[in-house]
């Protein structure tokens, strides 16, 4: 177990180093001089330009800029927003809980739809139930979530007037109001993941149901319900748990557009606003933070896999 962890970290650390170089390198893609962009109307004034360059250390050689940047990142300093004039780390920490609430609700919805649908379609393979479940999964995977969001606003907010079309109320402010403002975006965000989970659950269940121990259990006269729910499902869920954890990371990316449509002030809105304001340190910070969350989640996925699969513990 410890050896495994050590090996895993030996893989993660170089990945993180490469990642930091790539994210730092994003700046170099920028056409033109950042100092000119920042100076705005004062771009003709060489004094202002020199001051900006010195302040942002743009006048230093690239390797030095990188080492300086990564040194700050390691102590939790993700830089300073050019426009909002606040530390990037603070902005991210402010917005993260909002997106986390949205992603968690989306994830719960995805699990509640995807896993039972997968089980049902595996146990009733090649019946209309199976076809309908597969159809819904394909629908969820192919639906661009920003369009689904707009269509749902059209139906539930404009036509029926049941739910607010946009805005956000935090959980601590008013619990039910908060749920009302996030339920529609969470559903929109969750549909794609529901489809993916359904397909994986179905495949894993079909695999488990074809195993010898299932045949043995059936031959012993164990009730079909027990065979499905106790024997097959417990084994089938092992890969689904791992995959689900990683899919949670994808929800963060999906949140970018969903938050934009429902004007929810989260992580995704932060990066989009930063893109429009050319607030590059914020863009870099958000990319870095998502990547870190993603790497952490895949580590959690591996640990969970070991926890639910006793055979892995000896490895």
């Amino acid at each position: 177990m410890l050896r495994w962890l050590a090996r895993r970290f030996a893989q993660i650390i170089p990945t993180l180093i490469v990642l930091s170089v790539l994210i730092f390198g994003l700046q170099q893609l920028m056409p033109g001089d950042p100092a000119l962009i920042l100076a705005g109307e004062e771009r003709g004034d060489p004094m202002v330009l020199a001051q900006i360059r010195a302040e942002l250390r743009l006048d230093r050689p690239l390797p030095e800029q990188y080492l300086n940047w990564i040194g700050n990142v390691l102590v939790g300093d993700f830089g300073f927003s050019w426009r909002i004039r606040e530390p990037v780390a603070k902005l991210i920490l402010q917005k993260l809980p909002v997106t986390f609430q949205l992603a968690s609700m989306a994830f719960i919805i995805a699990v509640l739809i995807g896993v039972p649908a997968g089980i049902l379609s595996a146990t009733r393979r090649d019946t209309p139930t199976d076809w309908i479940a597969n159809g819904i999964a394909l629908f969820g995977i192919s639906m661009p979530n920003f369009w689904l969001g707009i269509m749902m606003i059209l139906l539930f907010s404009v036509e029926l007037g049941w739910l607010p079309p946009s805005g956000y109320v935090s959980l601590t402010e008013d619990f039910w109001e908060s749920i009302a403002t996030t339920i529609m975006p969470a559903f929109v965000l969750g549909t794609g993941v529901a489809g993916v989970l359904m397909r994986h659950t179905r495949a894993a269940m079909l695999g488990a149901l074809a195993q010898d121990y299932v045949r043995t259990a059936r031959a012993k006269g164990v009730a079909e319900r027990v065979v499905v729910w106790k024997h097959a499902l417990r084994n089938a869920l092992i890969p689904v748990v791992t995959l689900g954890t990683i899919e949670f990371g994808r929800l963060l990316a999906g949140a970018v557009l969903t938050e934009q449509i429902f004007t929810i002030p989260g992580f995704g809105k932060l990066i989009v606003d930063a893109v429009f304001n050319r607030d590059y340190p914020v863009v870099q910070g958000v990319v870095l933070a998502t990547a870190l969350i993603f790497v952490a989640l895949s580590l959690v996925a591996d640990l969970l896999y070991m926890a639910v699969n006793p055979r892995m513990r000896q490895a």
Binding site: L26, A274, V286, V287, T290, A291
Partner: peptide, 16 residues
């Protein structure tokens, strides 16, 4: 490790 869409947004943002 960077979700597809976020990577694409970041690249597109820096490229213009």
């Amino acid at each position: 490790s960077v979700p597809f869409l976020i990577l694409a947004i970041a690249l597109a943002a820096f490229l213009g």
